[in-house]
């Protein structure tokens, strides 16, 4: 299965669309959003860094689903079914691929924060943010897989984009929640993206993520996980 992981990670990283959309875009947006109009707000530079790293991670995680949809269309999943690999190994390998391919986006945005925007934190905070964002991206990988197994390649692309942009904006990854009207702010608290970014923001503030964040994320993990399993089961017969 490690071979499969290696093969799929390679294929993802060779995808120009992924490199631009999943890694370069969040970095550029981060630098743009934090340096327009003076840009001396240190707190916003840190918060936006976490938000954009989260946004990049969500995009990369969802992208895994796009890969699945593509593999379904070209018959690669069918071809894998006539090799000794079990279906379970294939799905697991794909999920792991998602968890590896979120790393470049997270690393790149954090690097831009530290090196370009001069964000200063303790070493443990950097490490903890990276690890939390990495683990916290798992629900989004599952959401992507659910879309990929369930939908056609084209609709998966659209569904992923809608999920990515919608959840990112409403979750406050792009703009601070303070700019939102009250009702949207309360809605935002229930989005997986908002709670996902909170994992990193609380560490940047020097304390552990709150129970609320963990609870909401766990609920989404279960929901997206079931969606992925359900979609996979449904498609397994037709792949």
């Amino acid at each position: 299965m490690l071979d499969y992981l290696r093969l799929e990670v390679r294929r993802t990283l060779r995808d120009t669309g992924f490199v631009i959309g999943g890694i370069a875009m969040p970095v550029m947006m981060y630098l743009l959003f934090t340096n327009l109009g003076g840009g001396d707000d240190g707190e916003w530079k840190t918060a936006s860094m976490v938000g954009m790293a989260a946004y990049g991670a969500v995009g990369s995680a969802l992208n895994t689903g796009g890969g699945v949809a593509e593999d379904k269309v070209i018959g690669w999943l069918r071809q894998l079914r006539v090799t000794p690999m079990t279906p379970r190994e294939v799905v697991l390998g794909r999920a792991l691929t998602g968890s590896v391919t979120v790393l470049p986006a997270i690393t790149a945005v954090l690097a831009a924060g530290g090196l370009v925007n001069g964000v200063r934190m303790d070493v443990w905070q950097w490490a903890a943010i990276a690890v939390l964002l990495w683990l916290g991206s798992i629900p989004f990988t599952l959401l992507g897989l659910g879309n990929g197994y369930r939908l056609t390649a084209q609709t998966t692309g659209v569904a992923n984009m809608v999920c990515n942009l919608g959840l990112s904006v409403i979750g406050g990854l792009w703009f601070p929640l303070a700019l939102f009207p009250g009702w949207l702010r309360s809605l935002s608290a229930y989005t997986p993206t908002n709670r996902f970014a909170q994992l990193g923001v609380s560490v940047a503030d020097g304390h552990a993520p709150g129970l609320g964040a963990m609870a909401v994320l766990t609920a989404w993990l279960l929901a997206f996980g079931s969606y992925a399993v359900f979609s996979y089961r449904r498609s397994a017969r037709t792949v």
Binding site: L7, R10, R11, R14, D15, E70, D71, V73, I74, G75, W76, R78, Q79, V82, P84
Partner: peptide, 16 residues
């Protein structure tokens, strides 16, 4: 591992 197959209607795997 006793079987290998060449299926119809498969397209090349991209980027490998």
């Amino acid at each position: 591992g006793k079987v290998g197959a060449m299926l119809q209607e498969t397209r090349p795997v991209p980027r490998v």
